[in-house]
């Protein structure tokens, strides 16, 4: 309770949490408010916003309802962002724990692999991966995670290196616990807090990467995405700029909201740590 109150003390955290809540409501409400196919034609093409109140944000080049697309796009952005970040954190935590706990050659090998992934720009990696495997939601998630796990891996490894010297790890060895159980049951859970602190940045970056992939036409073609909407609108940027501006604003607000809310969480737990 205290922690919640501390979280809501900074205005940035409040703004971030509200944006995030709005986004989640949009994503959850999309199939209820706009039950049909958001890619179906709903009216005349290129209807400007605020003209027809049954299509408040107007229509795009093909006559699709922009508001419906926006809501369904929030679903995709959030799902891909969260899934990719979760996958990146999981891979990173496991690789970092193995490297830090095993030490020696295994550590050396895993960290060289991490270096290799880190030197390739993560967007190029995602681009190459989707181009080869083909665009679908799962592939996009995997492609983004592929470029995002190295940060969590490094943080997890550093934390594990300090935890493995603690008495309780020696104690686990003394009672005959297997190394894998020590690494994943005793050490990993205690190494997680600083790894999880990275999650807001990773989610925000994942949402941006997904939008960029979709913008380049490498998103899942069966789903509405904000990046895809911006790309669609680009063709009529002079005559109907709102088609690019509306999803663009949604994207910026989302990324900002995720980031601010995440910072709020980190800050409130940091305060707690320094108080105790």
């Amino acid at each position: 309770m205290n922690r919640l109150r501390r979280f809501f003390r900074t205005p940035e955290a409040i703004a971030g949490a509200n944006t995030l809540a709005l986004l989640i409501v949009m994503a959850l409400a999309a199939p209820l408010l706009f039950p049909g196919d958001p890619q179906a034609i709903a009216g005349p093409a290129l209807l400007p916003p605020f003209q027809d109140w049954s299509l408040p944000l107007g229509t795009d080049r093909l006559g699709r309802d922009v508001l419906a697309e926006l809501f369904h796009g929030a679903r995709t952005s959030l799902a891909v962002g969260l899934a990719a970040a979760a996958a990146a954190l999981l891979i990173g935590a496991v690789v970092g724990t193995l490297a830090g706990f095993a030490g020696g050659l295994i550590d050396e090998a895993l960290m060289r692999i991490t270096d290799a992934f880190q030197t390739v720009p993560s967007f190029l990696l995602a681009l190459a991966f989707v181009s080869i495997v083909g665009p679908s939601l799962g592939v996009v998630v995997a492609a983004i995670a592929l470029g995002a796990w190295t940060g969590p891996a490094r943080v997890a490894r550093a934390e594990v290196l300090s935890i493995r010297e603690r008495d309780y790890v020696a104690g686990a060895r003394v009672i005959g616990m297997q190394p894998m159980e020590i690494a994943f049951r005793e050490v990993l859970p205690n190494a997680l807090p600083p790894v999880l602190a990275l999650s807001s940045v990773i989610v925000a970056a994942a949402i941006l990467t997904e939008a960029a992939l979709s913008f380049l036409g490498l998103g899942d073609p069966n789903r509405v995405t904000w990046g895809g909407m911006i790309a669609e609108g680009r063709a009529v940027l002079r005559t109907a700029p709102f088609l690019s501006i509306v999803p663009g604003i949604a994207l910026v607000l989302t990324v900002l909201g995720v980031y601010l809310a995440g910072e709020g969480v980190v800050e409130s737990s940091a305060v707690r740590r320094s108080l105790s």
Partner: peptide, 16 residues
Amino acid sequence: RAKLQMVFQDPLAAFN
């Protein structure tokens, strides 16, 4: 190891 056990100095640090 079952037959050879240990008790540490700091009982808080000795447990997860």
